[in-house]
C-alpha cells in the first residue's frame, strides 16, 4: 500500500445475467461519481468492489491495496475489504435497535482503525436521539442517516454510496446532500458514489465517470 497510489483502480468485467459489463477507470481522492441510467449495472460494480459479487475477470485496488485480482488469484473476503457500504435499500438490521446497528461494525473494527469517534459521528449525523428506536420506526431520512453512520463507524478506508438520496423525500434531500458534502471534505475517505441524477452528481463529485446504457 503506498500513499500516492490512486484511490480507485478498477478494470473489471462483470457478468450480469446475459450481459457482460466492462469498467476501466482510475480515480484520485475525493468523491468519484458513477453516473448513468438505472439498470446500467452501477450497483453490480459497487458489489464487486465490496466483495459481494465476483467479477468474471479483472483487477480492483483501492488506495494501492489489491482487493481482487483474477490473474494473481487475490479475492479478499468482504469482511476484510474495510469498505463502508451505504446500500440503496439501507439494509438496517430489523431485529436490532439503532444503537446496536451502529455498534455492529464499531465493535468489529479494531480500535486504531476507528478513524471517527462514536460521539463525533453521532453529532455529525444528528442521530443521537434515535439510538433506542427500532429501524422500522424511522423515517426515510432518519434511516438513511443511520445507514451512513453504521458504515462510517465500521472503520472503513473507503466509502461506497449507492443512490443515498433514493429513500429520502424531497424536503430532506438538501439535508442529506449537505451531510455527504461534509463527509467528503472532513473525512478524506475516497468515495465511490452511484447516482442517476445529474444535478446531484454535479454538485457532489470531484469527477464523473459516465456509465452508458449497456
Amino acid at each position: 500500500m503506498s500513499s500516492d497510489a490512486p484511490a480507485f483502480e478498477i478494470a473489471v468485467t462483470l457478468n450480469r445475467g446475459r450481459l457482460r459489463l466492462t469498467y476501466d477507470f482510475t480515480a484520485g481522492p475525493g468523491l468519484t461519481a458513477l453516473f448513468g441510467p438505472s439498470g446500467a449495472g452501477k450497483t453490480s460494480l459497487l458489489d464487486a468492489v465490496a466483495g459481494l459479487a465476483r467479477p468474471a475477470e479483472g483487477r480492483i485496488a483501492v488506495s494501492g491495496k489489491v482487493l481482487y485480482d483474477r490473474t494473481a488469484r487475490i479475492d479478499l473476503k468482504p469482511e476484510r475489504r474495510r469498505c463502508g457500504y451505504v446500500f440503496q435499500d439501507l439494509r438496517l438490521f430489523p431485529h436490532r435497535t439503532v444503537r446496536d446497528n451502529l455498534r455492529y461494525g464499531w465493535k468489529l473494527a479494531q480500535a486504531e482503525r476507528r478513524s471517527l469517534g462514536w460521539d463525533h459521528t453521532l453529532d455529525l449525523l444528528g442521530i443521537a436521539p434515535l439510538l433506542d428506536r427500532m429501524p422500522a420506526t424511522l423515517s426515510g431520512g432518519e434511516a438513511q442517516r443511520v445507514a451512513i453512520g453504521r458504515a462510517l463507524l465500521s472503520g472503513p478506508t473507503f466509502l461506497l454510496m449507492d443512490e443515498p438520496l433514493a429513500s429520502v423525500d424531497a424536503a430532506r434531500r438538501g439535508e442529506i446532500l449537505g451531510l455527504i458534502e461534509r463527509i467528503r471534505s472532513e473525512l478524506k475517505l475516497p468515495i465511490l458514489y452511484v447516482s442517476h441524477d445529474r444535478a446531484e452528481v454535479e454538485r457532489l463529485a470531484d469527477r464523473i465517470i459516465p456509465i452508458p446504457t449497456p
Partner: peptide, 27 residues
C-alpha cells in the same frame, strides 16, 4: 431471512459464522 442483511453484516466486518449467529439465527 433477507440475504441482503447478511451481506450487509459481511461488509461491516463480520465473518460467515458471526453473520450466521447475529443475523441469520435470530431472524
Amino acid at each position: 431471512v433477507d440475504q441482503r442483511l447478511e451481506s450487509a453484516a459481511r461488509t461491516l466486518g463480520a465473518g460467515p459464522w458471526r453473520t450466521f449467529a447475529t443475523v441469520t439465527l435470530p431472524l
